[in-house]
C-alpha cells in the first residue's frame, strides 16, 4: 500500500484506522479484499515516524464499552503530510503505471476537494500522449518486419490501453460531478 494513498485519504478529515480500511475496501472492491488487515496500520505507523501524521488518543472512558484497542486512535495530517499530499496530486507516475494508485488518487482528490479529478486525468493524458508520440515515431522509423518494431508496437499498444482507461476515468468522473 502506497503511503501517499493513506495520507490523501486523511486529507478530508482525521480518521480512525478502521475507517480508512473501510474507505479503501469501498474504493477497491474485490481488489481491496486481498489487502491484509494490518497493512493500513503498518503504513500509518511509518507515516507517524516520518512526521507526516499525528495521532490522538481519545479520553480514556471508563466502563466495559471502552475496550482498549489501536483502532481507537485518530490519525490526522501534519503540515508536512499535507504538503506531501499536494505534491502527490500533481505527480505523473508513468512509465511505471500503478492503476490502483492512480484510481485512489482520483478518489481522494474528489473526497477532500484537493484537486479536480478531471484535471488530474488531463495531466496524465498529456504525459501519456507525449510518450505515445515518442514510441510511435520510433516505430515508424523502423523498417517493416524489424524486430525492434515489434517491441515498439507492444509499447504503443500498452500506452493506448492506458489512454483508453483514462477515457473511462474521465467519463465516470464527469458523470459523478454532474450528478453530485
Amino acid at each position: 500500500m502506497q503511503q501517499e494513498v493513506v495520507l490523501a485519504l486523511l486529507a478530508k478529515e482525521p480518521s480512525h484506522g478502521y475507517q480508512l480500511r473501510a474507505r479503501l475496501r469501498q474504493a477497491l472492491g474485490p481488489i481491496g479484499e486481498a489487502m491484509n488487515a494490518g497493512q493500513v496500520y503498518v503504513v500509518l505507523t511509518r507515516l507517524e515516524k516520518a512526521g507526516l501524521v499525528t495521532t490522538e488518543r481519545p479520553e480514556l472512558a471508563t466502563g466495559p464499552a471502552a475496550a482498549p484497542t489501536a483502532d481507537r486512535k485518530t490519525y490526522a495530517l501534519t503540515p508536512k503530510g499535507q504538503q506531501r499530499v499536494a505534491e502527490w496530486m500533481t505527480e505523473v507516475s508513468w512509465p511505471k503505471p500503478d492503476l490502483t494508485e492512480f484510481h485512489l488518487k482520483l478518489v481522494a482528490a474528489a473526497a477532500a476537494g484537493l484537486a479536480d479529478p478531471l484535471s488530474i486525468v488531463d495531466t496524465q493524458r498529456r504525459e501519456l500522449l507525449r510518450r505515445l508520440r515518442e514510441a510511435q515515431r520510433a516505430a515508424m522509423a523502423e523498417p517493416d518486419g524489424a524486430e525492434a518494431g515489434l517491441l515498439l508496437e507492444g509499447i504503443v499498444l500498452r500506452l493506448q490501453a492506458d489512454l483508453r482507461w483514462l477515457e473511462a476515468c474521465e467519463r465516470s468522473w464527469t458523470t459523478r460531478r454532474s450528478t453530485s
Binding site: D122, R125, R126, R130, E134, A135, I155, T174
Partner: peptide, 26 residues
C-alpha cells in the same frame, strides 16, 4: 484539442516537452 459537448475543453502541445522515455517504457 479535446472536445466535449460541442466545445474545446483542453489543449496540449505534443511537440517539444519530455522525451527520452523509450528505455523506461520498454
Amino acid at each position: 484539442i479535446s472536445m466535449r459537448d460541442g466545445a474545446f475543453v483542453d489543449e496540449t502541445r505534443l511537440t517539444g516537452g519530455t522525451t527520452g522515455h523509450l528505455g523506461a517504457l520498454a
